[in-house]
């Protein structure tokens, strides 16, 4: 056994290149742009063509992305006002071609809506509910879209960047007033109920 380093991923084409090529060939109208970094291709799609594009990625013999890995969102509140605030991220895996691809659809804060994919991938059901729960993204057409992780009566969507998260302040020497009972704390202290 020699002490050579493990082969790096750069020897093979970027993951998801297969999906990007297929979409550029079959559905150029859906493809906004592709982005290749760290050996992974990210495909940016137009939301209107999302269902058709992912069905294509699932069924086409060149792609066969049959295993849904996850759906999530990334919140970018500091983008320019005209820019969409949320990236909805879909990650799929192809066992046949040993590949994975990432599809991103961008939606605005005013209309955080994308069509549901639960009829394409049964496994997307819960992931879409989770994204709805934590980000407030509306998956249009989902049969049972309600909170999954948090209690039904929860207010707000905690993974949005503007959601103040910390549970309870910790009293150190520089902020000893936190050690006071709630009624005796100064009124202007920052803080949150959660």
């Amino acid at each position: 056994m020699t002490t050579t380093a493990a082969p790096t991923a750069s020897a093979r084409p970027s993951r998801g290149r297969r999906a990007a090529d297929l979409l550029a060939r079959e559905m150029p109208e859906a493809l906004l742009r592709t982005h290749d970094e760290y050996g992974e291709v990210t495909v940016y799609l137009h939301a209107d063509h999302l269902v058709r594009a992912l069905t294509l990625l699932r069924d086409d013999g060149d792609a066969m992305y049959t295993l849904p890995l996850f759906v999530t969102a990334v919140d970018w509140p500091d983008r320019e006002p005209a820019q969409p605030r949320f990236d909805i991220v879909y990650q799929l895996r192809s066992l046949q071609h040993n590949d994975e691809c990432r599809v991103i659809v961008q939606v605005t804060e005013d209309a955080p809506q994308v069509p549901t994919l639960e009829r394409v991938f049964a496994g997307m059901d819960w992931h879409e509910r989770e994204t709805f729960d934590l980000f407030g993204i509306d998956f249009v057409g989902h049969h049972d879209l309600h909170r999954i992780l948090l209690p039904e009566d929860w207010v707000g969507h905690p993974l949005r960047k503007d959601y103040v998260s910390f549970g309870e302040p910790v009293a150190f020497t520089h902020n000893l007033e936190w050690a006071l009972p709630a009624a005796e704390r100064p009124r202007d202290m920052p803080g949150t109920s959660r």
Partner: peptide
């Protein structure tokens, strides 16, 4: 079904 549900 295992694939459709994302089972691994």
């Amino acid at each position: 079904d295992a694939l459709a549900y994302g089972a691994t």
